[in-house]
Amino acid sequence: MIRLPRLLTVSAVLTLFGLALMVWSMIEPTPMPVMLAMSVGQMFGTVAFGLFGFVVLVDQLRKAREKGERARAEAARVASGQLPKVPTSDGQAPAGAAQPSTAARSEPAPPSSGEASR
């Protein structure tokens, strides 16, 4: 199992090392820092960005998969008649939807006219 936060931490640390080498080469432009920045520093940066891209890709794929699973589960519930009633604007159950029991109603029933006149 790939742990995405750990990969992102590695990516962030590699980027920091790469940036440090690049800044060092600019502050002290002698052969060793310049060569390190242009080779190791850039390799760190490239690997870090690759890791970040990989993490984003995996995360997006996982989210898409979860969304698909939710949609399939929803469809299965609809097919089996377990879907909670979605009331229409006039308070009536939509045509073809399963009629929920009275206990499942979230709002109390309106009082009858006789009760209201008391």
């Binding site: 992102l8 310049v34 940066g45 970040f52």
Partner: peptide
């Protein structure tokens, strides 16, 4: 945020650092 921190900003540093490094390698001091 990480796209900027890991990708775009380091790319700016690397690109400009390369130009600066290239200029530095041409100097007599180097």
């Amino acid at each position: 945020v990480l796209l900027f921190a890991v990708g775009l900003l380091p790319l700016g540093t690397a690109a400009n650092g390369n130009v600066a490094g290239y200029h530095a390698t041409k100097t007599r001091v180097f």
